[in-house]
Simulated scan of single mutants.
Amino acid sequence: MTASLADKIDPAFEIQGVREGMGPFVFNSPHSGRIYPRRFVEEARLDFPSLRRSEDCFVDELFADVVQEGVPFMRALFPRAFLDLNREPYELDPRMFEGRLPSYANTRSLRVVSGLGTIARVVGDAREIYTRRLSLEEGLARIETYYKPYHKALRALLSQVQGQWGVAVLVDCHSMPSTSLRGSAVNADFVIGDRFGTSCSALVSDALERELVAAGYCVLRNKPYAGGFITEHYGRPATGLHAVQIEVNRGIYMDEAHYLHSSRFTRVRADIAQAMSRVLALVRSGLAAPRAAAE
């Protein structure tokens, strides 16, 4: 699927694989959306290919096969450069807006300082997006229209799964530029983030690492990506809610310069599907059991 323009993005997200008897997992891809608001693109100082630098390109396709395992998969259809779902709802940069931000806005987080707040000031390579300051109303409207409904639906989905199993495991799916590990001793294919063990049972994180390594990939844990807002916010193992982030190196599955599948895409997708199938089976037997069966 290629990127496109639309006057209105409706629906703004979709959830596949919802049914009775779902497994104890929810897969989520908040950054792979590639339907761009036409006005946003027309008013940006960057060209369309440059705006796409922040996309987790094709991640929704890489993980799409999990629905065949009986678990739901949620994905945003709008782009991260327009609104970032992996942030607090009001991580906002006051330099981007006309007028004063509300007192509840978080204006000092490291993500805001770097230009990558809820409404990003820059794309992934630190290039400015906007030619003008946004009105406060415009910014808040994006949060009300896109951010809040998305997270409301995600919370409801996790609650539904946890109601069936007693636990729910959120797998937050992302990608990283091949250059992001430049200078590192290891050029990883995958990075698994569980907030250094605080957001997810080690049973899940260990299984993910083991299965991906068995498939021939180099896997790191928590460095340089330990998990963002979604992993931190939803990961509450003590309450039966687990969250883990997976970052996939774009260099192993796509042509990053031209936003195309590479010759390895099909193989990587198949390897992910097989690894996730084995992880799901392990977690079903080791962490969760349907409440009806348990009772």
Rank of each mutant, 00 (worst) to 15 (best):
T2L: 13
L5Y: 03
A6P: 10
I15C: 13
G17K: 07
G17R: 04
G21F: 10
M22A: 08
M22D: 07
P24A: 11
F25T: 09
F27H: 08
P37H: 03
V41A: 12
S50P: 01
D56K: 13
C57Y: 11
V59Q: 08
D60K: 07
V67W: 01
E69T: 11
V71E: 03
R75A: 05
L77A: 03
F82H: 07
N86Y: 11
Y90P: 02
R95I: 01
P102K: 02
R108P: 06
S114F: 06
I119P: 01
V122H: 13
A126C: 10
Y146N: 00
P149F: 04
P149T: 06
L154T: 04
L154V: 02
Q164L: 15
V167A: 01
A168Y: 05
S175D: 05
S184N: 06
A185L: 02
A188N: 02
D189K: 13
V191L: 03
I192V: 15
D194K: 12
R195K: 13
E211W: 13
L212W: 15
A214Q: 00
V219C: 01
Y225E: 09
T239C: 12
G240R: 10
Q245N: 07
I246K: 07
E247K: 09
V248E: 04
M254S: 11
S262A: 12
S262T: 02
V268L: 08
R278T: 13
R284Y: 05
S285A: 15
A292H: 09
